[in-house]
């Protein structure tokens, strides 16, 4: 597969401002931080959830519980993809029943990851409400799923890959679009 970087769509400053804005929106929608739990989808949803959590703490002065969701066992493509993804732990520090959950992921594309995440959450309890926050919405949904908080809408073609790079994992904060020579699903990360 041939790939080349086509454009940088977010730099470090823009990512920082966007996360602060999402933090404000989450508080506004929830009318505060009561019963709020942020849940990041592995991998890059996790540092994003932590950053939104820090943003909320700076604004409201209160810590919001942050969980990590591993959706591997709930994926619908396990028998068609390879290599097989490593299953990791799901760690949510509180009982989610009755809580307002904000699911956090880096890129919203087909919606299949979110579908898997919703099923995984439902097996852990019965939240009062689940909201979805993503840094990038790149379109091409295959399921009736939409995000409640969007960092940036980026129209893409299916030949492109959106790469969200985060310091905690990739050593830099940057969002780039890469072009490939074939139809490609957003890589599982």
């Amino acid at each position: 597969m041939v790939t080349k970087t086509k454009a940088e769509i977010m730099d470090e400053d823009r990512i920082r401002r966007t996360i602060i804005r999402i933090a404000h929106e989450v508080i506004e929608r929830n009318r505060g931080v009561k019963d709020l739990v942020l849940v990041g989808i592995r991998r890059r949803g996790v540092p994003l959830a932590e950053r939104i959590g820090r943003g909320i703490q700076e604004i409201e002065g209160e810590r919001v519980p942050i969980g990590i969701l591993d959706i591997t066992l709930y994926r619908d493509d396990l028998t068609t993809i390879g290599p097989q993804p490593m299953v990791q732990q799901t760690k949510i520090p509180v009982d989610i029943t009755g809580k307002t959950i904000v699911l956090v992921d880096d890129v919203l594309y087909t919606g299949r990851t979110v579908r898997a995440a919703l099923d995984a959450l439902m097996d852990l309890g019965r939240p009062k409400k689940i909201l979805l926050a993503v840094l990038i919405d790149r379109g091409h949904r295959e399921l009736p799923i939409r995000a409640d908080f969007v960092g940036r809408n980026v129209p893409t073609s299916k030949r492109e890959i959106v790469h969200v790079k985060l310091k905690e994992i990739d050593g830099e904060d940057r969002v780039i679009i890469e072009e490939t020579n074939r139809l490609f699903n957003q890589p599982y990360n």
Binding site: L73, L78, T79, T80, I81, G82, P83, N185
Partner: peptide, 14 residues
């Protein structure tokens, strides 16, 4: 889980 059959492409979902 680990013995479950996988395919050959490197594609994923999002």
């Amino acid at each position: 889980y680990l013995l479950m059959e996988g395919g050959s492409s490197s594609e994923g979902i999002s």
